[in-house]
Each structure stands twice: as C-alpha cells, then as structure tokens.
Design a protein around this nucleic acid. Structure first.
Lengths: 187, 187
DNA sequence: GGATCGAGTAGACACTGTCTACTCATCCCT
DNA sequence: AGGGATGAGTAGACAGTGTCTACTCGATCC
C-alpha cells in the first residue's frame, strides 16, 4: 500500500516507474505493478485497457523526465548547448537503463491513447534549432546526430563498444561524434 | 513436423529463425518453437538449459547471416566499401526487423555457452581496417560510425526520424552520416 | 542378453494477461 | 428521503508461458 492520495492511474504509473528502476523492465508485469499500487490485478483495467498501454504510459513518463532535464540545459554557444544536451541524453540512458529500454520498445508505439512516437518531437525541434546555427540542412544533421547519440547509448549498454575499442571511456567517442556532425570545435 | 534430418538443436534454431521472420520476436515462446520443430515442450531443455539461451542461439544465427552478407561486400575504394557495408547493415535491419531486434536485446547477452557480445567483433574489425585508410584514430571513428548506423536502424524502425524530418527518404541521412564520420567524398 | 544411458514425453507448478461476474459505496432524481 | 443507476475495484476463471521432475523407450555396450 503506497500513498493513497493520488488517483489510481497516477499511482500505477509511479509504481511502474519505481519498479523499472529497481527491478528492470522484465519485472513490469501487470500484476506486480497492481500489487505495488496496493490494488487487485483487475483494477488497472479501468484506466489502461491493456498491459501494453500501461507500459506506454510509464514510458511517456520517462520521456517527460528526459524532456525536463533537457529543458534545463544551457550553453554559451549552440555548440556548447548541443554538447550539454548530448551529455544529458547519454547520462539519462546510462542512469535509467530500464526506463530507456522501455522508452524505445517498438511494440509500445501505438499503445495508449496518445502515440508515443510524437513525444520526442519537441526535443528534436530544439536539436534542429541549435544545429541550424552551425550547419545547413539542419534537419538532416540533427537527425543524424540524434541517431548517433541513440546508437551510442544502446551500444554502450550492450558493452560492444567497450569491447571493440578496448576502453570504457566514452569521452573521445562523444567528442568524435560531435565533431563529425557539427564540425570541429571553433575557438 | 518439419524436416527431421538435422539434429534437434539445429531444427530448433531454424524454427526460431523462421518464426521470428513470420510472426515477430514476441512469438518466440519456447513452447511454440518446440511445436514448430515437432517436439514436446520439454525437449529443447536437452540443448538449451533456458529459454533465453535458445533465443541467444537464434540471435547468433542472425549475426552469422549478417556477417555473411557483409563479407560479400566490395568497393573500389575504402569509402565505397564502407558505404556498401553501411547499406548492407541498414538493409538487413529493415528486412529482418524481428531478428535485428532480437540480436540487440540486452538480456540475451550473457545467455548461451558463448557470449553474444563477441559475435560482432569481426565485423567491427573490418570497419576499423577500412576506416584506417581514411582517418586517424580509426577505432574511435569506426565506433562512432557503427553507433550511428545502429541508431539509424533503430530510429528508422521506430518511425521517429520519418516524423521529425518529414520524409522517409534515408539517402540524405545516410550520406550525411558517412560524410560526417569519413569526411566529404573525394572525387 | 541384460543393464545403462541419453533423448524425448508428459504432467505439475507458479505465474502471466485478459475477460467476466460480482460487490458496494456514491450520486442523482423525482 | 428513498431507490435506482453508475462507477471503481474485487475475485475467480481461462488459456498460455517457463521451469522442473518423473517417466518411457529405444539404442548401445560389455
């Protein structure tokens, strides 16, 4: 029995977020989330018609937290701002591996009353805006950069890059990525 | 009852590969794979101690097929060779979405008698070798490039980049990625 | 020729997601 | 003020899952 104040919908999502962090994404069964929220296993059905739609709501909460962190990023120059955003993205993925995995599960895309895909659009818009000060065709470059960050986050979690490059220091890799897409750092 | 000639181990993996292509990764239950191989649900246990280790073997088969395709790639220049490899990688991910998803499931990493992580090392070695003709610090650049291709494959499947860039033409994106990491194409 | 052993079978167990029938308190309406 | 309707949450059934254990049964070996 967690706090009983908020409505069950919020409590279920909160329990799911906590469970993701504590036990990982494979522990997110409908019944365990309901247990943690202190209700029977049939109760979530009032708010989430299916298991996937509940997972989708939890993932949406994750996107919200990432967006909040990203909105707090600043930078003296667009380049510095982008570097800060990249760091925030990669840190989020490393510190919240279960949530990050959940956020990009493709079978969650269509579940829930709102599409999950659109949730990342505002963040991408900021990326495009910052890139437009540095590069022509900013939408393409921003897309390529986002893909690169996403791939870095995934492969870092996989451990492949550490094995392949022989080190787990990601600084040179991140610098190489930023230089590649944005051009070498200007003095 | 599929063909009974090869040993059950191979038949199970083959049934899993087929099932992945036909029904997707969520259909890969132990019992359904056993059913397709024409044996009882307890039989796989002789060869794969756990469900995950069977999935891991199926993913390994996927890496083998990708490696075979990659080995057939050629190019007049390292740059052309790399471009061909990139295209093969992205095509494989698009044409075998279920298998690609399975290959990079992080909970499969440690299952099976051989680590799955090492399976991608030879391919990465080829990448490093080709990049070394074009760039200093080829391990870092190859790592960044691989991460970028992986991110492209994932986000293309997710549909986010199509939504964000307003087009589903990946040619400019791929060209931007190759130019970014390898330098602009030389005449 | 009889014991041994390995491959595969069959069933139990706990757990899952979904569905349906049910309680029961709250609210609305005349 | 009283009674029906509504809505949230409960409880149980059902099929399906992964794992484990007991068992068959044919081949192999001494």
């Amino acid at each position: 029995m967690t706090t009983e104040d908020p409505d069950l919908r919020s409590r279920l999502v909160a329990a799911g977020v906590q469970l993701t962090a504590e036990e990982g994404v494979q522990a997110l069964s409908l019944r365990e989330i309901a247990r943690r929220a202190g209700v029977s296993h049939g109760a979530p059905r009032r708010y989430f018609p299916t298991h996937l739609s509940l997972l989708s709501a939890i993932a949406r909460e994750g996107f919200g937290r990432l967006a909040a962190r990203s909105a707090a990023a600043t930078g003296a120059t667009p380049r510095a701002h982008l570097a800060e955003l990249a760091r925030i993205y990669l840190d989020f993925a490393r510190e919240n591996p279960g949530m990050y995995e959940l956020m990009f599960r493709h079978d969650l895309l269509e579940s829930g009353e709102l599409g999950l895909r659109d949730t990342s659009l505002p963040l991408f818009g900021l990326l495009v805006q910052l890139v437009s000060d540095l590069r022509p065709d900013p939408a393409v470059v921003a897309g390529a950069l986002w893909a690169n960050l996403h791939g870095l986050a995934q492969l870092r979690r996989w451990g492949s890059l550490q094995l392949a490059t022989g080190t787990d220091d990601f600084e040179p890799l991140l610098r190489s990525v930023l230089d590649a897409h944005l051009g070498p750092e200007t003095p």
